[in-house]
């Protein structure tokens, strides 16, 4: 094991770097897209249920199918990392748009009403009051999306781009246990660290939710 690690440090680190980028970039993109979509689901109550349904359908598409199918739609090369980024962004949006909508809907109506009565205009009320109060719900969704993305990236190895997943394919091809073990451990550790990071940020920015 030690020998494998020391002989392949560069390969492992490169895979890890790629894994981080492929998993987390879609979280950022997806979150940015999900915010306005989720808000629409609250602002226009009729949109909410269709939104929830569409998100459910999107999330149920098998990831491998999406990885293979996207190049056809996007015109990208089958081996382009862009396919993974777009696919995982779609999953993130599907998860987070609903979470954002549910988070905003969870804000006590007394709170939004008193904000309005105090003279908040709609946008500032959203930024200053509704989003901060919805944060615990939204961040819970963000944790789920982040961890899900980190595990999904590995599937990309089957089409040649998969961060730590490439260690699995290599291990299977060579009947060699070490890369598989390293890949599993690194992947779990990465998910744990990312999850912990979000929890820490949450503790920092929502101290009120723990009182």
């Amino acid at each position: 094991m030690i020998t494998y690690l020391s002989n392949n440090t560069d390969v492992i680190l490169a895979a890890l770097r790629q894994h981080i980028v492929l998993a987390l970039l879609p979280v950022l993109i997806g979150f940015a897209v999900a915010l306005p979509i989720g808000y629409l689901g609250v602002r226009f109550p009729r949109v909410y249920h269709p939104l929830v349904n569409v998100c459910g359908v999107l999330y149920s598409i098998p990831s491998l199918a999406l990885f293979v199918f996207l190049p056809v739609i996007l015109g990208t090369k089958i081996l382009s990392p862009l396919n993974i980024v777009v696919a995982l962004s779609i999953y993130t949006v599907a998860l987070l748009a609903r979470t954002v909508a549910d988070g905003l809907r969870s804000v006590d109506e007394l709170v939004t009403q008193s904000a309005t009565a105090m003279g908040y205009r709609r946008f500032r009320r959203l930024v200053d009051v509704e989003l901060p109060v919805a944060l615990p719900v939204i961040l819970a969704g963000l944790r789920a999306a982040t961890v899900a993305n980190i595990s999904l990236v590995s599937v990309g190895a089957l089409i040649g781009v998969g961060g730590l997943g490439q260690l699995f394919t290599r291990g299977f091809q060579l009947f060699y246990l070490e890369p598989i073990l390293v890949g599993i451990i690194a992947s779990i550790a990465l998910a744990a660290v990312a999850d912990l990071a979000i929890v820490l940020v949450q503790r920092l920015i929502t101290p009120w939710s723990r009182v």
């Binding site: 007394l110 709170v111 009403q113 008193s114 009565a117 003279g119 009051v129 109060v133 929502t206 009120w208």
Partner: peptide, 22 residues
């Protein structure tokens, strides 16, 4: 609307305080 409301103090049952602010 907003300017009018800023000039009128508003108190409701259960206070409706912002939970995320001190």
């Amino acid at each position: 609307e907003a300017l009018l409301r800023r000039g009128i103090g508003y108190v409701i049952q259960h206070a409706g305080l912002f939970p995320h602010r001190t």
